[in-house]
Design a protein around this nucleic acid. Structure first.
Lengths: 333, 333
DNA sequence: CTGAAAGCGCTTACAG
DNA sequence: CTGAAAGCGCTTACAG
């Protein structure tokens, strides 16, 4: 027999199915008495609204996709939960998927979301093979915002927004120089990626202005790489401070120093990037560039919803301000 | 004009819309030549399949909801990504939502998922107000598995599965006793919650068997509480070891000890719970009860899909084996 | 304020 | 192997 439909409700309430539909939409043109009858019938039958059927007939608004390159990284987790909750609160539905830095999975995920009728998308894309993913969005004419990483150059179609990474790199480098550090490395980040380039650029600019030779220690944005880098700082590299690509690397550096009996904040000054929740809880507490990622996520959700509902397409490129949170890892113990 | 439909494709290919539908379903009863014509027409028109319309007519299989109490906790993040990816790989679509430990949000989330036509649900529920959430699922007759936390007693309707927390508590306590510890606390976890009770039970059992007085230090499952607890161990409590409710608490304890110049693994032995990725990367590396959460997630996805596709309802209560990973935090430096 | 009819984009028997 | 028709559960004009 399946679930009851509006026809069953109509029959039970003794009205037509149009009337039931109007009740469902809270139309003011239904009398209170009829509305009550219908509501009671729905409750008795255990009626559940079938949104797919409704969307089929009316304009398909309401479903927003959120596609994230690495949901296990706390920075992205915090972003994704902020976006998802903002979307839900606004009465839209959100579907979120992790693409695990895999271009093929990203392409499949997007194809599935389009088939499921998303009207808009927020994507923190994987690097590589952008055509497969963004091409589909372009052909399907789906409103999509590119966030945190600029992978598609078509920011006219896919407006881009991120925290101002370059400014963050600048703040971190200037702060370290102000504390007296002179041999400052940039640790982590993979060459050729937009986020790496931007975060490094602020650092490079400041070092150049002070006549200090830069040192780029490239590597994956992970704790494991940070630990490895710590060993190199102790054994080979002559540095007294570092700006890290992100907090995971920085926390790895702290851990690596600790395992060799050295203390970050005393023997070495360190600044991370992203200010994930853990930064304040580590020992020593980690200085970090705060991107306000939860607010950023809420803002992205609001922009996409404005785009969908009012046609207000966001500007092609936006950078939100960042600030440096100074803690013991760079300010000394 | 909107997106092209199968009618447009049929017209362009010079066939009926039924034929287009058959091509869409890869029916063998369409000639290769016709199939080609249809495929070409679809490509030229930029046709996109409308899954909602298809589901409306046929049996609504394919959408699975994943409802998680705290997606920012890395243990749940790892679980959720494993489930989501297993579901996607099997050709189902997944919608995941964070309920942020908020019963009202959980109830709204579930209502929305039901309206969107999920055929099954995997839920790691929030504590409290289970009737609002599980009642909806029961009335809508949706296959739902309760995982990681047993909140609804109706395991006949909502089969429960989790790692064997009690065994984990036992392993941790036995290990600490074997290393020579004698004054062993259990740190973190809130009274009255099923997971707390189970994790404590193994610890209590082992301590009783050895005639050791237990000490329960209750608190939130966070790093911040762990740091606070560390201070109490140093200032007031006379302990030489602790089993933690989870790794976040344990990592907080390590951080708190470090900030007071004490070293876990030398001055104090510590075992965490969950074995999140970070456990191996911290300093000192953290001993922990490994729950195999990624495999557990894959298994839950497989069970739900078997339930949906073959009617194989999972047994009411399943505990998966856990094991203790010994690292320097308990084995000494 | 309420009802009868058409239509959203598909799939599914049923003919041929 | 292909086509004409009915139907999935809603919403939307249009009458009344």
């Amino acid at each position: 027999m399946g679930r009851p439909t509006i026809i069953d409700v109509a029959r039970a309430a003794g009205v037509s199915k149009s009337t039931v539909s109007l009740v469902l939409q809270n139309s003011p043109s239904v009398s209170d008495r009829t509305r009550e009858d219908v509501r009671r019938a729905m409750a008795e039958l255990g009626y559940v609204y079938n949104r797919a059927a409704a969307n089929l007939r009316s304009a398909q608004i309401g479903l927003i996709g959120l596609v994230i390159n690495d949901l296990k990284n706390p920075f992205f987790t915090e972003f994704a939960t902020a976006v998802q909750m903002a979307i839900s609160e606004a009465g839209y539905a959100a579907v979120v998927a992790n693409t695990d830095e895999d271009p093929a999975l990203q392409a499949r995920t997007i194809a599935a979301m389009i088939e499921h009728g998303v009207s808009g998308l927020i994507i923190s894309p994987v690097y590589g093979d952008e055509e497969a993913s963004f091409g589909q969005l372009e052909r399907a004419g789906i409103a999509a915002m590119q966030v945190l990483r600029r992978v598609s150059p078509r920011t006219d179609l896919f407006p881009f927004a991120s925290p101002d990474y370059a400014a963050g790199g600048r703040l971190a480098a200037e702060h370290l120089i102000a504390t007296g550090a002179r041999r400052i490395a940039f640790v982590g980040g993979i060459e050729g990626r937009s986020v790496t380039a931007e975060r490094q650029s602020g650092y490079l600019e400041v070092l150049a202005a002070h006549g200090i030779e830069p040192l780029l220690v490239q590597g994956r944005p992970t704790r494991a790489f940070g630990r490895e880098a710590a060993g190199r700082f102790i054994d080979e590299l002559d540095c007294d401070a570092a700006v890290c690509f992100n907090d995971l690397v920085a926390l790895g550096v702290i851990s690596g120093f600790a395992s060799r009996g050295r203390v970050v904040g005393r023997d070495f000054r360190l600044v991370g990037f992203d200010d994930i929740e853990e930064a304040a809880q580590s020992y020593p507490p980690l200085s970090s560039v705060q991107c306000g990622i939860a607010e950023f996520g809420q803002d992205m959700a609001a922009r996409l919803m404005a785009w969908l509902s009012e046609g207000a397409k966001p500007v092609p490129d936006t950078r939100s301000p960042v600030k440096l949170i100074v803690r013991a890892s760079s300010a000394g113990l």
